[in-house]
Lab assay of single mutants.
Amino acid sequence: DESNKPILLPNESQSFERSVQLLDQIPSYDTHKIAVLYVGEGQSNSELAILSNEHGSYRYTEFLTGLGRLIELKDCQPDKVYLGGLDVCGEDGQFTYCWHDDIMQAVFHIATLMPTKDVDKHRCDKKRHLGNDFVSIVYNDSGEDFKLGTIKGQFNFVHVIVTPLDYECNLVSLQCRKDMEGLVDTSVAKIVSDRNLPFVARQMALHANMASQVHHSRSNPTDIYPSKWIARLRHIKRLRQRICEEAAYSNPSLPLVHPPSHSKAPAQTPAEPTPGYEVGQRKRLISSVEDFTE
Score class of each variant (00 low, 15 high):
Glu72Val: 08
Asn45Asp: 08
Ile103Cys: 10
Pro78Ser: 10
His109Arg: 03
Arg18Tyr: 10
Met180Asp: 01
Asp223Ala: 05
Glu72Phe: 08
Gln213Gly: 04
Ala111Gly: 05
Pro164Trp: 00
Asp87Met: 02
Ser173Asn: 06
Ser219Pro: 03
Thr269Ile: 10
Ile50Gly: 02
Val135Leu: 00
Phe292Ile: 15
Asn11Cys: 08
Gly85Arg: 06
Val158Leu: 02
Asp133Pro: 09
Asp101Thr: 02
Ser142Gln: 01
Glu246Ser: 07
Pro78Phe: 12
Lys80Phe: 05
Gly42Tyr: 07
Ile110Asn: 02
Val162Gln: 01
Phe108Asn: 01
Ile103Ser: 06
Arg123Gln: 13
Ala106Cys: 14
Gln105Ala: 14
Arg18Thr: 12
His235Arg: 07
Cys89Met: 10
Asp166Asn: 03
Val107Ala: 06
Met114Val: 04
Ala49Gln: 08
Lys178Glu: 09
Gln105Pro: 03
Phe155Trp: 11
Gly90Pro: 12
Asn45Lys: 10
Ser219His: 10
Asp133Lys: 03
Ser212Asn: 01
Lys190His: 06
Glu17Phe: 07
Asn156Trp: 02
Phe95Val: 05
Asn53Ile: 01
Gln281Asn: 13
Asn132Cys: 14
Ala49Lys: 10
Asp185Leu: 02
Leu113His: 04
Gln213Thr: 11
Phe95Pro: 07
Tyr225Leu: 13
His55Met: 11
Cys169Gln: 09
Pro27Asn: 06
Ile230Arg: 12
Ala106Arg: 01
Leu64Ala: 02
Ile71Ser: 07
Gln77Val: 11
Trp99Ile: 02
Trp99Asn: 03
Asn45Gly: 10
His215Trp: 10
Val289Pro: 15
His235Gln: 14
Leu67Gly: 00
Tyr29Glu: 09
Asn220Asp: 08
Tyr58Val: 06
His215Met: 14
Gln175Trp: 04
Gly153Pro: 02
Glu12Pro: 06
Glu272Pro: 09
Leu67His: 00
Thr293Leu: 05
Gly85Asn: 12
Arg195Ser: 08
Phe155Cys: 15
Lys80Ser: 07
Asp120Glu: 11
Val81Asn: 14
Ala211Lys: 02
Leu73Gly: 12
Arg59Lys: 01
Arg238Ile: 06
Ile103Val: 08
Thr163Trp: 02
Asn11Tyr: 09
Ile137Ser: 00
Glu47Asn: 02
Val119Arg: 10
Asp194Pro: 00
His207Gln: 04
Gln43Lys: 02
Ser13Lys: 06
Arg284Ala: 11
Asn251Ile: 13
Ala35Lys: 03
Asp166Arg: 01
Met114His: 06
Ile110Gln: 03
Asp24Thr: 03
Asp1Val: 12
Ser253Gln: 14
Val81Thr: 10
Ala271Ile: 11
Thr150Lys: 02
Glu72Lys: 10
Thr293Asn: 13
Ser13Cys: 09
Leu113Cys: 04
Leu130Glu: 05
Val192His: 01
Asn53Met: 01
Val81Arg: 15
Pro255Glu: 13
Gln175Leu: 06
Ile7Gln: 06
Tyr139Val: 01
Arg218Gln: 12
Thr293Cys: 10
Pro275Gln: 12
Glu246Cys: 08
Cys98Ile: 15
Leu148Asp: 10
Leu51Cys: 02
Arg123Val: 14
Asp79Cys: 04
Leu70Asn: 07
Arg69Cys: 14
Ala265Arg: 09
Thr293Val: 04
Cys76Asn: 11
Asn140Thr: 00
Leu51Thr: 03
Ala247Pro: 11
Tyr249Asp: 12
Glu144Trp: 02
Tyr38His: 00
Thr65Val: 05
Gln175Tyr: 03
Pro78Met: 12
Tyr167His: 04
Leu70His: 06
Glu91Val: 06
Asp101Lys: 01
Trp99Pro: 03
Phe108Gly: 02
Lys126Ser: 05
Ala208Ile: 01
Leu148Asn: 11
Val20Lys: 12
Gln281Cys: 09
His122Glu: 15
Pro255Thr: 08
Glu62Arg: 10
Gly182Ser: 11
Ser44His: 10
Leu254His: 15
Tyr60Lys: 00
Thr112Lys: 02
Pro270His: 11
Ser187Val: 03
Lys228Ala: 07
Ala111Phe: 06
Thr31Arg: 09
Arg282Asp: 14
Asn220Gly: 05
Met180Cys: 12
Ser250Lys: 08
Asp75Tyr: 14
Ala271Met: 13
Val88Cys: 10
Ser227Tyr: 06
Leu285Glu: 13
Gly143Thr: 03
Ile286Thr: 14
Gly276Arg: 07
Ser187Leu: 03
Lys126Ile: 04
Asp120Tyr: 09
Leu130Pro: 03
Pro270Asn: 09
Arg128His: 07
Ser19Lys: 06
Pro270Glu: 08
Ser253Phe: 07
Val200Cys: 03
Ala208Phe: 03
Gln281His: 09
Ser212Met: 14
Glu72Gly: 07
Ile191Cys: 06
Gly68Glu: 03
Ser3Cys: 12
His122Tyr: 11
Ala49Ser: 06
Met204Ala: 07
Arg240Asn: 13
Ala265Leu: 08
Ile161Gly: 01
Ala111Gln: 03
Ser3Asp: 15
Asn53Gly: 02
Ile7Gly: 10
Thr61Tyr: 11
Asn251Asp: 13
Phe155Gln: 14
Tyr60Trp: 02
Thr274Pro: 12
Gly40Thr: 02
Pro252Thr: 09
Ser173Pro: 01
His215Ile: 13
Arg128Lys: 11
Leu171His: 05
Asn196Lys: 03
Ser288Met: 08
Glu181Leu: 12
Asp87Cys: 05
Arg218Gly: 08
Pro198Phe: 00
Ser217Pro: 03
Gly68Gln: 05
Arg240Asp: 14
Lys126Arg: 05
Gly276Phe: 05
Pro259Lys: 11
Ile26Gly: 05
Tyr167Asp: 06
Ser217Ala: 13
Arg234Lys: 07
Asn196Phe: 02
Tyr38Ser: 00
Tyr249Ser: 08
Leu48Ala: 12
Pro266Cys: 11
Asn4Ser: 14
Leu23Arg: 06
Ala189Arg: 10
Lys190Ala: 15
Asp79Ala: 06
Arg202Thr: 09
Asn251Leu: 13
Tyr225Gly: 13
Gly182Met: 08
Leu197Ser: 03
Gln14Cys: 11
Ser19Arg: 08
Asp79Glu: 10
Lys228Arg: 08
Leu174Met: 12
Ser263Met: 11
Asp102Trp: 04
Asn220Pro: 04
Ser288Phe: 06
His100Arg: 13
Ser136Asn: 03
Asp179Ser: 08
His122Ile: 06
Ile7Asp: 11
Glu41His: 06
Lys264Pro: 11
Asp125Ser: 12
Arg238Met: 12
Ala49Glu: 05
Gln213Met: 11
Gly90Ser: 09
Ile71Leu: 07
Asp92Met: 07
Ile286Pro: 13
Ala247Ile: 11
Val158Asp: 00
Gly182Pro: 13
Ile191His: 03
Gly153Tyr: 04
Leu37Ser: 01
Asp185Asn: 06
Gln21Val: 05
Glu12Lys: 06
Asp120Arg: 09
Val162Met: 02
Gly143Ile: 01
Pro10Trp: 11
Asn53Val: 01
Leu8Cys: 15
Leu256Arg: 12
Gly85Pro: 14
Ile191Arg: 02
Glu245Asp: 12
Ala231Gly: 14
Gly68Ser: 04
Thr65Leu: 07
Val119Asp: 15
Gln14Glu: 11
Gly93His: 12
Leu206Ile: 08
Asn170Val: 01
Arg177Met: 13
Pro273Trp: 10
Asp101Val: 00
Asp179Gln: 13
Gln105Asp: 09
Tyr58Lys: 07
Lys74Gln: 09
